[in-house]
């Protein structure tokens, strides 16, 4: 099992190096935005991969509420963590892009606001899982929080669009990209999605092992003190 994950991780790292090579060597420089435009490839890919992770949290949460299946809950836990990491990547890379292009790290535009709210909601989800006693009860609570979080973000996005938006609009679906850029973007997106899937897989395995560990072992692993657990 561990061997498989090691191989998959190696493949993911190689794929990300390939994507990096394409971004810096193959894709042409943007006429107007120059070098900072290269942030776009990983920024949008990370955002899409994060969204896929939160979709997995939603699916896992709904399945868990319907069936009480522990595997669905583990999927939600694993995907939420990876999703928060990818959202962090999206936010940080977006800020690095915004500084030279817009002249500021942050602006309260619809996309930026809703991404930040997304990050806060799922960071709260992870904290709920960390602070509450593990067990079927908190799994149910977290599933409810995961579903509400997913509903909230599009609402925030559409409510803020009243304000003027400075974020670049969709360029993929409108065919605005030259073919080299489009290919680079698609490769980067595929590699990022693969990387995200591998990370979710590894995290899922860790959650499985934690669930199967004898009572009290988790406290040792995590290095935190907990009350004795009644049910796992």
């Amino acid at each position: 099992m561990t061997k498989t994950y090691e191989r998959l991780t190696a493949v993911a790292v190689l794929l990300m190096l390939l994507a990096a090579g394409m971004i810096f060597l193959y894709a042409p420089e943007d006429y107007l935005q120059k070098e900072p435009q290269r942030i776009f490839y990983l920024h949008v890919s990370a955002a899409i991969a994060a969204f896929a992770c939160f979709l997995a949290v939603l699916v896992g949460s709904v399945i868990y509420l319907r069936t009480e299946n522990a595997r669905a809950d583990r999927l939600a836990r694993a995907a939420a963590l990876v999703g928060v990491v990818l959202t962090t990547v999206t936010l940080v890379m977006g800020m690095l892009y915004a500084k030279p292009i817009w002249g500021t790290f942050w602006t309260w535009d619809a996309r930026l606001t809703s991404t930040l709210v997304l990050w806060i909601i799922y960071a709260g989800y992870l904290l709920l899982r960390r602070l509450a006693e593990p067990g079927p009860q908190v799994a149910r609570y977290a599933a409810v929080a995961g579903i509400f979080g997913f509903v909230d973000v599009p609402i925030v996005y559409f409510s803020v669009t009243w304000w003027r938006t400075v974020h670049p609009g969709p360029v993929i679906v409108t065919n605005a990209l030259p073919p080299e850029m489009l290919i680079t973007f698609l490769v980067t997106m595929a590699c990022t999605l693969f990387l995200a899937a591998v990370m979710v897989g590894i995290r899922y395995r860790i959650e499985t092992l934690l669930d199967e560990a004898p009572s009290g072992a988790e406290a040792t692993i995590r290095g935190t003190q907990r009350e004795p657990e009644l049910a796992r």
């Binding site: 709210v117 709260g124 709920l128 602070l131 509450a132 009860q137 609570y141 509400f148 909230d152 925030v156």
Partner: peptide
Amino acid sequence: RVRAREVLLPLLTLPLWIPFIIA
């Protein structure tokens, strides 16, 4: 029914209230 409830309530509730605060 969760420990650290004083910390968790704002963390979970405030982000979900944001749509109401926007409108």
